[in-house]
Design a protein around this nucleic acid. Structure first.
Lengths: 210, 210
DNA sequence: CCGCTAGACTTAACGCTGTTAATTTCCTGA
DNA sequence: TCAGGAAATTAACAGCGTTAAGTCTAGCGG
Protein backbone atom coordinates (compact mmCIF):
# COMPACT_ATOMS: atom_id res chain seq x y z
CA UNK A 1 0.00 0.00 0.00
CA UNK A 2 1.42 3.37 -0.96
CA UNK A 3 -0.23 5.07 1.97
CA UNK A 4 2.92 5.12 4.04
CA UNK A 5 4.85 6.53 1.11
CA UNK A 6 2.24 9.20 0.59
CA UNK A 7 2.31 10.11 4.27
CA UNK A 8 6.07 10.36 4.19
CA UNK A 9 5.80 12.65 1.23
CA UNK A 10 3.25 14.82 2.99
CA UNK A 11 5.45 14.96 6.07
CA UNK A 12 8.39 16.04 3.99
CA UNK A 13 6.27 18.64 2.22
CA UNK A 14 5.17 20.25 5.46
CA UNK A 15 8.70 20.15 6.79
CA UNK A 16 9.82 21.89 3.66
CA UNK A 17 7.14 24.51 3.98
CA UNK A 18 8.19 25.26 7.54
CA UNK A 19 11.73 25.71 6.34
CA UNK A 20 10.68 27.96 3.48
CA UNK A 21 8.50 30.16 5.64
CA UNK A 22 11.10 30.34 8.38
CA UNK A 23 13.81 31.26 5.91
CA UNK A 24 11.77 34.10 4.49
CA UNK A 25 10.99 35.44 7.93
CA UNK A 26 14.55 35.05 9.21
CA UNK A 27 15.92 36.84 6.18
CA UNK A 28 13.40 39.63 6.39
CA UNK A 29 13.51 40.23 10.12
CA UNK A 30 16.34 38.25 11.64
CA UNK A 31 16.31 35.07 13.68
CA UNK A 32 15.73 36.55 17.11
CA UNK A 33 12.79 38.66 16.05
CA UNK A 34 10.87 35.76 14.54
CA UNK A 35 8.94 33.63 16.99
CA UNK A 36 7.80 30.08 16.63
CA UNK A 37 4.26 31.33 16.98
CA UNK A 38 4.70 33.58 13.99
CA UNK A 39 6.11 30.82 11.86
CA UNK A 40 3.19 28.66 12.90
CA UNK A 41 0.71 31.35 11.95
CA UNK A 42 2.17 31.59 8.47
CA UNK A 43 1.95 27.88 7.80
CA UNK A 44 -1.50 27.81 9.41
CA UNK A 45 -0.69 25.23 12.04
CA UNK A 46 -0.46 25.50 15.79
CA UNK A 47 2.96 26.41 17.20
CA UNK A 48 3.53 23.02 18.73
CA UNK A 49 3.20 21.27 15.40
CA UNK A 50 6.61 22.64 14.45
CA UNK A 51 8.09 20.62 17.26
CA UNK A 52 6.94 17.45 15.53
CA UNK A 53 9.31 18.33 12.69
CA UNK A 54 12.17 20.12 14.40
CA UNK A 55 13.69 19.62 17.80
CA UNK A 56 13.79 23.33 18.49
CA UNK A 57 14.07 26.74 16.90
CA UNK A 58 17.81 26.57 16.38
CA UNK A 59 17.49 23.32 14.45
CA UNK A 60 15.41 25.16 11.87
CA UNK A 61 18.13 27.75 11.63
CA UNK A 62 20.85 25.15 11.25
CA UNK A 63 19.08 23.53 8.37
CA UNK A 64 18.58 26.86 6.61
CA UNK A 65 22.20 27.82 7.10
CA UNK A 66 23.37 24.51 5.76
CA UNK A 67 21.22 25.02 2.66
CA UNK A 68 22.58 28.51 2.18
CA UNK A 69 26.16 27.48 2.54
CA UNK A 70 25.63 24.66 0.15
CA UNK A 71 24.83 27.41 -2.33
CA UNK A 72 28.03 29.25 -1.41
CA UNK A 73 30.09 26.10 -1.70
CA UNK A 74 28.64 25.43 -5.13
CA UNK A 75 29.36 28.99 -6.28
CA UNK A 76 32.94 28.69 -5.20
CA UNK A 77 33.42 25.29 -6.71
CA UNK A 78 32.02 26.60 -9.96
CA UNK A 79 34.92 29.03 -10.03
CA UNK A 80 37.34 26.18 -9.69
CA UNK A 81 35.83 24.67 -12.82
CA UNK A 82 36.55 27.82 -14.78
CA UNK A 83 40.24 26.99 -14.71
CA UNK A 84 41.50 30.51 -14.07
CA UNK A 85 45.15 31.06 -13.36
CA UNK A 86 45.87 30.40 -9.67
CA UNK A 87 46.07 33.97 -8.44
CA UNK A 88 43.02 35.15 -10.34
CA UNK A 89 41.12 32.08 -9.17
CA UNK A 90 41.84 33.00 -5.58
CA UNK A 91 40.78 36.59 -6.19
CA UNK A 92 37.57 35.51 -7.86
CA UNK A 93 36.80 33.18 -4.98
CA UNK A 94 37.20 36.05 -2.54
CA UNK A 95 34.89 38.24 -4.58
CA UNK A 96 32.29 35.50 -4.66
CA UNK A 97 32.54 34.94 -0.93
CA UNK A 98 32.09 38.61 -0.07
CA UNK A 99 29.28 39.16 -2.52
CA UNK A 100 27.56 36.08 -1.20
CA UNK A 101 27.81 37.32 2.37
CA UNK A 102 26.39 40.70 1.44
CA UNK A 103 23.53 39.21 -0.49
CA UNK A 104 22.66 36.78 2.30
CA UNK A 105 23.48 38.97 5.23
CA UNK A 106 21.12 37.45 7.73
CA UNK A 107 22.19 33.96 7.05
CA UNK A 108 25.82 34.99 6.96
CA UNK A 109 25.51 36.67 10.29
CA UNK A 110 23.78 33.70 11.80
CA UNK A 111 26.39 31.16 10.82
CA UNK A 112 29.61 33.10 11.19
CA UNK A 113 28.89 35.95 13.53
CA UNK A 114 26.99 34.23 16.28
CA UNK A 115 29.05 32.23 18.71
CA UNK A 116 27.93 28.80 19.70
CA UNK A 117 27.63 30.05 23.24
CA UNK A 118 24.87 32.54 22.69
CA UNK A 119 22.99 30.42 20.19
CA UNK A 120 21.45 28.66 23.13
CA UNK A 121 21.77 25.07 22.11
CA UNK A 122 24.19 23.66 24.64
CA UNK A 123 22.09 20.64 23.85
CA UNK A 124 25.03 18.52 24.80
CA UNK A 125 27.07 18.07 21.68
CA UNK A 126 25.79 14.75 20.41
CA UNK A 127 28.03 15.14 17.38
CA UNK A 128 25.15 15.05 14.89
CA UNK A 129 25.40 17.52 12.02
CA UNK A 130 26.84 20.29 14.15
CA UNK A 131 30.54 21.08 14.11
CA UNK A 132 32.75 22.14 11.27
CA UNK A 133 33.80 18.71 10.01
CA UNK A 134 31.82 17.77 6.96
CA UNK A 135 29.73 20.92 7.00
CA UNK A 136 29.14 23.14 4.02
CA UNK A 137 31.22 25.77 5.74
CA UNK A 138 34.11 23.37 5.53
CA UNK A 139 33.49 22.85 1.84
CA UNK A 140 33.59 26.60 1.24
CA UNK A 141 36.78 26.91 3.26
CA UNK A 142 38.20 23.93 1.42
CA UNK A 143 37.96 25.97 -1.75
CA UNK A 144 40.19 28.63 -0.24
CA UNK A 145 42.76 26.06 0.82
CA UNK A 146 42.91 24.57 -2.65
CA UNK A 147 43.11 27.99 -4.29
CA UNK A 148 46.01 28.96 -2.06
CA UNK A 149 47.65 25.59 -2.63
CA UNK A 150 47.53 26.15 -6.36
CA UNK A 151 49.24 29.50 -5.89
CA UNK A 152 51.96 27.76 -3.94
CA UNK A 153 52.40 25.17 -6.68
CA UNK A 154 52.63 27.94 -9.22
CA UNK A 155 55.45 29.38 -7.15
CA UNK A 156 53.84 32.76 -6.54
CA UNK A 157 53.14 32.24 -2.83
CA UNK A 158 55.69 33.52 -0.35
CA UNK A 159 57.17 31.25 2.32
CA UNK A 160 54.11 30.47 4.45
CA UNK A 161 52.10 27.49 5.61
CA UNK A 162 49.17 26.93 3.25
CA UNK A 163 46.71 26.34 6.07
CA UNK A 164 47.74 29.54 7.80
CA UNK A 165 47.65 31.51 4.55
CA UNK A 166 44.12 30.27 3.90
CA UNK A 167 43.06 31.32 7.36
CA UNK A 168 44.52 34.77 6.76
CA UNK A 169 42.54 35.10 3.56
CA UNK A 170 39.42 33.94 5.31
CA UNK A 171 39.96 36.41 8.13
CA UNK A 172 40.34 39.30 5.70
CA UNK A 173 37.31 38.58 3.55
CA UNK A 174 35.19 37.58 6.50
CA UNK A 175 36.24 40.75 8.29
CA UNK A 176 35.22 42.96 5.43
CA UNK A 177 31.97 41.10 4.89
CA UNK A 178 30.94 41.20 8.50
CA UNK A 179 31.90 44.84 8.96
CA UNK A 180 29.85 45.84 5.96
CA UNK A 181 26.95 43.85 7.34
CA UNK A 182 27.20 45.15 10.90
CA UNK A 183 28.26 48.74 10.53
CA UNK A 184 25.77 50.52 8.34
CA UNK A 185 26.70 53.23 5.91
CA UNK A 186 25.05 55.85 8.07
CA UNK A 187 27.13 54.87 11.07
CA UNK A 188 30.47 54.89 9.34
CA UNK A 189 31.87 56.71 6.32
CA UNK A 190 32.53 53.75 4.10
CA UNK A 191 33.48 55.02 0.70
CA UNK A 192 32.54 53.15 -2.42
CA UNK A 193 31.96 49.53 -1.45
CA UNK A 194 33.14 48.06 -4.71
CA UNK A 195 36.58 49.59 -4.57
CA UNK A 196 36.96 48.73 -0.90
CA UNK A 197 36.29 45.11 -1.75
CA UNK A 198 38.83 45.16 -4.57
CA UNK A 199 41.46 46.86 -2.44
CA UNK A 200 40.98 44.35 0.34
CA UNK A 201 41.40 41.44 -2.01
CA UNK A 202 44.35 43.13 -3.67
CA UNK A 203 46.02 43.81 -0.34
CA UNK A 204 45.66 40.34 1.08
CA UNK A 205 46.79 38.59 -2.11
CA UNK A 206 49.73 40.95 -2.53
CA UNK A 207 50.67 40.32 1.07
CA UNK A 208 50.78 36.58 0.50
CA UNK A 209 52.77 36.60 -2.73
CA UNK A 210 56.48 36.87 -3.04
CA UNK B 1 22.38 72.24 52.07
CA UNK B 2 24.48 69.42 50.75
CA UNK B 3 21.57 67.02 50.71
CA UNK B 4 20.91 67.38 47.01
CA UNK B 5 24.58 66.86 46.33
CA UNK B 6 24.60 63.79 48.52
CA UNK B 7 21.55 62.40 46.77
CA UNK B 8 23.14 62.98 43.42
CA UNK B 9 26.19 61.13 44.64
CA UNK B 10 24.08 58.23 45.88
CA UNK B 11 22.23 58.11 42.60
CA UNK B 12 25.47 58.00 40.71
CA UNK B 13 26.78 55.31 43.04
CA UNK B 14 23.81 53.03 42.44
CA UNK B 15 23.99 53.68 38.73
CA UNK B 16 27.62 52.70 38.83
CA UNK B 17 26.84 49.54 40.76
CA UNK B 18 24.24 48.52 38.22
CA UNK B 19 26.80 49.01 35.49
CA UNK B 20 29.44 47.04 37.36
CA UNK B 21 27.13 44.13 38.11
CA UNK B 22 25.76 44.11 34.58
CA UNK B 23 29.24 44.14 33.09
CA UNK B 24 30.33 41.17 35.16
CA UNK B 25 27.23 39.20 34.22
CA UNK B 26 27.42 40.14 30.53
CA UNK B 27 31.05 39.14 30.37
CA UNK B 28 30.47 35.87 32.17
CA UNK B 29 27.34 34.80 30.38
CA UNK B 30 26.66 37.09 27.48
CA UNK B 31 24.14 39.85 27.04
CA UNK B 32 21.16 37.79 25.92
CA UNK B 33 21.42 35.29 28.73
CA UNK B 34 21.37 37.90 31.45
CA UNK B 35 17.94 39.19 32.42
CA UNK B 36 17.04 42.45 34.08
CA UNK B 37 15.65 40.45 36.96
CA UNK B 38 18.99 38.80 37.50
CA UNK B 39 20.82 42.10 37.52
CA UNK B 40 18.26 43.42 39.97
CA UNK B 41 18.72 40.45 42.25
CA UNK B 42 22.45 41.01 42.39
CA UNK B 43 22.15 44.66 43.33
CA UNK B 44 19.36 43.78 45.76
CA UNK B 45 16.76 46.04 44.23
CA UNK B 46 13.56 45.30 42.40
CA UNK B 47 13.83 44.91 38.62
CA UNK B 48 11.94 48.09 37.87
CA UNK B 49 14.39 50.20 39.83
CA UNK B 50 16.89 49.73 37.03
CA UNK B 51 14.53 51.58 34.73
CA UNK B 52 14.90 54.67 36.92
CA UNK B 53 18.57 54.70 35.93
CA UNK B 54 18.57 53.33 32.39
CA UNK B 55 16.02 53.65 29.65
CA UNK B 56 16.25 49.98 28.78
CA UNK B 57 18.53 46.98 28.75
CA UNK B 58 20.42 47.99 25.67
CA UNK B 59 21.33 51.34 27.19
CA UNK B 60 23.21 49.50 29.92
CA UNK B 61 25.06 47.61 27.24
CA UNK B 62 25.90 50.75 25.31
CA UNK B 63 27.41 52.36 28.35
CA UNK B 64 29.51 49.29 29.11
CA UNK B 65 30.72 49.08 25.53
CA UNK B 66 31.65 52.72 25.52
CA UNK B 67 33.67 52.19 28.70
CA UNK B 68 35.40 49.19 27.23
CA UNK B 69 36.27 50.92 24.01
CA UNK B 70 37.58 53.88 25.91
CA UNK B 71 40.07 51.38 27.30
CA UNK B 72 40.93 50.17 23.80
CA UNK B 73 41.30 53.71 22.53
CA UNK B 74 43.65 54.51 25.39
CA UNK B 75 45.72 51.39 24.75
CA UNK B 76 46.10 52.29 21.14
CA UNK B 77 46.91 55.90 21.83
CA UNK B 78 49.55 54.77 24.29
CA UNK B 79 51.29 53.06 21.41
CA UNK B 80 51.35 56.30 19.51
CA UNK B 81 53.19 57.88 22.42
CA UNK B 82 55.91 55.24 22.20
CA UNK B 83 57.14 56.83 19.00
CA UNK B 84 57.82 53.61 17.12
CA UNK B 85 58.77 53.77 13.46
CA UNK B 86 55.59 54.05 11.32
CA UNK B 87 55.36 50.47 10.12
CA UNK B 88 56.10 48.94 13.49
CA UNK B 89 53.65 51.35 15.09
CA UNK B 90 50.91 50.10 12.78
CA UNK B 91 51.81 46.50 13.51
CA UNK B 92 51.80 47.06 17.23
CA UNK B 93 48.41 48.75 16.99
CA UNK B 94 47.01 45.74 15.19
CA UNK B 95 48.39 43.40 17.83
CA UNK B 96 46.83 45.48 20.55
CA UNK B 97 43.47 45.57 18.79
CA UNK B 98 43.33 41.81 18.31
CA UNK B 99 44.54 41.01 21.81
CA UNK B 100 42.00 43.41 23.20
CA UNK B 101 39.18 41.79 21.26
CA UNK B 102 40.17 38.35 22.45
CA UNK B 103 40.45 39.44 26.05
CA UNK B 104 37.09 41.22 25.96
CA UNK B 105 35.26 38.87 23.66
CA UNK B 106 31.77 39.46 24.91
CA UNK B 107 32.05 43.19 24.70
CA UNK B 108 33.79 42.96 21.38
CA UNK B 109 31.07 40.80 19.99
CA UNK B 110 28.39 43.09 21.27
CA UNK B 111 29.75 46.26 19.73
CA UNK B 112 31.12 45.02 16.43
CA UNK B 113 29.36 41.79 15.69
CA UNK B 114 25.77 42.67 16.44
CA UNK B 115 24.00 44.71 13.83
CA UNK B 116 21.90 47.66 14.88
CA UNK B 117 18.89 45.88 13.48
CA UNK B 118 18.84 42.93 15.81
CA UNK B 119 19.85 44.90 18.88
CA UNK B 120 16.23 45.89 19.24
CA UNK B 121 16.51 49.58 19.80
CA UNK B 122 14.96 51.09 16.76
CA UNK B 123 14.16 53.67 19.36
CA UNK B 124 14.07 56.28 16.67
CA UNK B 125 17.56 57.57 16.29
CA UNK B 126 17.55 60.68 18.41
CA UNK B 127 21.25 61.09 17.70
CA UNK B 128 22.27 60.99 21.36
CA UNK B 129 25.42 58.98 22.06
CA UNK B 130 24.65 56.38 19.42
CA UNK B 131 26.31 56.47 16.04
CA UNK B 132 29.94 56.33 15.14
CA UNK B 133 30.72 60.04 15.22
CA UNK B 134 32.48 60.95 18.44
CA UNK B 135 32.30 57.44 19.82
CA UNK B 136 35.19 55.57 21.32
CA UNK B 137 35.04 53.25 18.36
CA UNK B 138 35.87 56.22 16.21
CA UNK B 139 38.79 57.10 18.43
CA UNK B 140 40.18 53.58 18.09
CA UNK B 141 39.71 53.68 14.33
CA UNK B 142 41.27 57.13 14.26
CA UNK B 143 44.43 55.55 15.56
CA UNK B 144 44.54 53.25 12.56
CA UNK B 145 44.07 56.13 10.17
CA UNK B 146 46.91 58.09 11.73
CA UNK B 147 49.19 55.05 11.78
CA UNK B 148 48.57 54.43 8.10
CA UNK B 149 49.00 58.13 7.35
CA UNK B 150 52.41 58.07 9.01
CA UNK B 151 53.38 55.14 6.81
CA UNK B 152 52.37 57.15 3.79
CA UNK B 153 54.40 60.13 4.95
CA UNK B 154 57.38 57.85 5.45
CA UNK B 155 56.95 56.78 1.85
CA UNK B 156 56.51 53.09 2.56
CA UNK B 157 52.82 52.92 1.63
CA UNK B 158 51.87 51.89 -1.87
CA UNK B 159 49.60 54.04 -4.02
CA UNK B 160 46.32 53.84 -2.12
CA UNK B 161 43.83 56.12 -0.42
CA UNK B 162 44.64 56.35 3.28
CA UNK B 163 41.01 56.00 4.35
CA UNK B 164 40.58 52.88 2.23
CA UNK B 165 43.86 51.42 3.45
CA UNK B 166 42.75 51.94 7.05
CA UNK B 167 39.49 50.20 6.35
CA UNK B 168 41.36 47.29 4.82
CA UNK B 169 43.50 46.98 7.92
CA UNK B 170 40.44 47.18 10.10
CA UNK B 171 38.67 44.51 8.05
CA UNK B 172 41.60 42.15 8.38
CA UNK B 173 42.16 42.48 12.10
CA UNK B 174 38.47 42.56 12.86
CA UNK B 175 37.99 39.49 10.72
CA UNK B 176 40.61 37.53 12.55
CA UNK B 177 39.40 38.69 15.95
CA UNK B 178 35.78 37.87 15.29
CA UNK B 179 36.54 34.51 13.72
CA UNK B 180 38.63 33.50 16.71
CA UNK B 181 35.80 34.61 18.98
CA UNK B 182 33.02 32.91 17.04
CA UNK B 183 34.55 29.71 15.77
CA UNK B 184 35.90 27.76 18.69
CA UNK B 185 39.03 25.67 18.55
CA UNK B 186 37.00 22.49 18.72
CA UNK B 187 34.94 23.49 15.71
CA UNK B 188 37.83 24.44 13.47
CA UNK B 189 41.48 23.38 13.28
CA UNK B 190 43.07 26.72 14.06
CA UNK B 191 46.76 26.17 14.47
CA UNK B 192 48.75 28.20 16.93
CA UNK B 193 46.85 31.42 17.52
CA UNK B 194 49.92 33.56 18.11
CA UNK B 195 51.50 32.80 14.76
CA UNK B 196 48.19 33.20 12.95
CA UNK B 197 47.90 36.67 14.40
CA UNK B 198 51.43 37.55 13.35
CA UNK B 199 50.95 36.20 9.86
CA UNK B 200 47.74 38.13 9.43
CA UNK B 201 49.38 41.37 10.47
CA UNK B 202 52.40 40.60 8.33
CA UNK B 203 50.24 39.85 5.31
CA UNK B 204 48.09 42.94 5.49
CA UNK B 205 50.99 45.30 6.12
CA UNK B 206 53.07 43.72 3.34
CA UNK B 207 50.09 44.05 1.05
CA UNK B 208 49.82 47.75 1.72
CA UNK B 209 53.49 48.61 1.33
CA UNK B 210 55.33 49.19 -1.89
C1' DC C 1 -18.43 -2.95 7.96
C1' DC C 2 -16.77 -2.08 12.46
C1' DG C 3 -13.59 -1.15 16.19
C1' DC C 4 -8.98 0.02 17.20
C1' DT C 5 -4.56 1.94 16.99
C1' DA C 6 -0.92 4.91 15.47
C1' DG C 7 0.13 9.18 13.98
C1' DA C 8 -0.92 14.11 13.36
C1' DC C 9 -2.37 17.90 15.48
C1' DT C 10 -4.17 21.10 19.15
C1' DT C 11 -5.15 23.09 23.80
C1' DA C 12 -3.45 24.47 28.00
C1' DA C 13 0.09 25.48 30.66
C1' DC C 14 4.93 26.47 32.73
C1' DG C 15 8.39 29.52 33.62
C1' DC C 16 10.72 32.73 31.62
C1' DT C 17 11.51 37.59 29.24
C1' DG C 18 11.57 43.17 28.81
C1' DT C 19 8.82 46.74 30.12
C1' DT C 20 4.94 49.92 32.02
C1' DA C 21 1.33 51.82 35.27
C1' DA C 22 -0.03 52.39 39.66
C1' DT C 23 1.16 52.40 44.31
C1' DT C 24 3.79 52.65 48.48
C1' DT C 25 7.71 54.09 51.24
C1' DC C 26 10.85 57.32 52.80
C1' DC C 27 13.36 61.56 53.43
C1' DT C 28 13.67 66.51 53.67
C1' DG C 29 12.51 71.41 53.66
C1' DA C 30 9.19 74.51 55.52
C1' DT D 1 4.61 67.99 62.25
C1' DC D 2 3.38 67.66 57.91
C1' DA D 3 3.26 68.30 52.72
C1' DG D 4 5.76 67.30 48.64
C1' DG D 5 8.63 64.91 45.89
C1' DA D 6 11.90 61.48 44.85
C1' DA D 7 12.89 56.60 45.07
C1' DA D 8 11.54 52.10 45.11
C1' DT D 9 8.13 48.51 44.86
C1' DT D 10 4.11 45.54 43.49
C1' DA D 11 1.27 43.94 39.96
C1' DA D 12 0.49 43.34 35.55
C1' DC D 13 0.90 42.98 30.28
C1' DA D 14 2.14 40.84 26.28
C1' DG D 15 5.23 38.09 24.48
C1' DC D 16 8.68 34.16 24.30
C1' DG D 17 10.40 28.80 23.67
C1' DT D 18 8.93 24.64 25.04
C1' DT D 19 6.37 20.47 27.17
C1' DA D 20 2.48 17.43 28.77
C1' DA D 21 -1.81 15.96 28.02
C1' DG D 22 -5.65 15.45 25.25
C1' DT D 23 -8.38 15.17 20.74
C1' DC D 24 -9.25 13.84 16.29
C1' DT D 25 -8.99 10.99 12.23
C1' DA D 26 -7.28 7.95 8.53
C1' DG D 27 -6.45 3.35 7.55
C1' DC D 28 -5.56 -1.23 9.20
C1' DG D 29 -6.93 -6.16 10.82
C1' DG D 30 -10.69 -8.87 11.81
Amino acid sequence: MGTKERRDREREALRGEILAVARDLFIQEGYERVSMRRIAERIEYSPTTIYLYFRDKSEILDEICEQTFAKLARSMERIEAKGLEPLEGLREGCRTYIRFGLRNRHQYRLTFMVSGVQRDRERDREEDSSGFEGSMGERAFGFLVRAVERCREAGVLREIDVAVASQVVWAAIHGLTSLLITVSEEDFPWGETKSLIEETIETVTRGLMR
